[in-house]
Amino acid sequence: MPTLSRAQGTALVLLRTLIGWHFLYEGYYKLVLPAWARGGTPMAKWSAAGYLAGATGPLAAPFHALGAVAGSWIDLAVPIGLVLVGLSLMLGLFTRAGCWGAMLMLALFYLSAIPLTGTPVPGQEGEYLLVSKNLIEFVAVAVILVSRTERIAGLDLLLPSTRTPAATATTA
């Protein structure tokens, strides 16, 4: 693998951190519910049921089936998964596992609603055809995974398995 310049390494770690925050806050927010908006409106407990019931595309059926059991383990597993992935990417701890987890979740999110119509969808920003933000974020995480950013910055550097000569992946 070619060495990365300092700027390239910094950019990749920054990208990893931002994606990590995205996951972390999405999970934290769901765990906090039920809660209140600052304006004084109550927000109900989060559930994956609505999202799963609204799944579209060729793979919608299994997601609908999952929606039928949502309200149990899925409602807890999703936010906890999001938080763990987020922490992993932000801290650079068990980064490769975090990346795989992120890609798995993003793949599920993408497959549950593959944008095939190419026309605006009510309640959704932008218009997509095949390529959605979930897919782009999936590829971004893949880039982070193959770039081995855990060898540039993060708590993984404290682990013996990561502390190898290859860890100095950047050049001055």
Binding site: Y25, P34, R38
Partner: peptide, 9 residues
Amino acid sequence: ISGPVRGGP
């Protein structure tokens, strides 16, 4: 910047 305030009814 602020998120939701914890707590149910």
